[in-house]
Amino acid sequence: MLLLPCPWCGPRNVSEFGYSGEVVTRPDPRSVTLTQWRAYLYLRDNRADWASERWFHRMGCRRYFTVRRHRLNHEVHPTPDDGAAPKGQP
């Protein structure tokens, strides 16, 4: 079972959460080229080790947060900036 550390509710079973993907930085829509915008939409690092991810506590406080998760062994670490949405993230 995978437990995720919600910064507001504490560790909860992963089935309570929604996964909203790798943390990506949204380019500035006023100066971005179409190619850059599409790269932002479609390209991800998809690493087989540590990744920073956004999660949504769907069945709890309904807030978003960021964790570092290992994609192979599912070890999870909270991140210090919990709660503050990076640019371009919900």
């Binding site: 079972m1 996964y19 993907g21 790798e22 991810e53 994609r71 192979l72 599912h74």
Partner: peptide, 12 residues
């Protein structure tokens, strides 16, 4: 429901 390289099964 989330990205992973693990081939473990889940009870869910």
């Amino acid at each position: 429901p989330f990205a992973s390289y693990s081939t473990r099964g889940s009870l869910e």
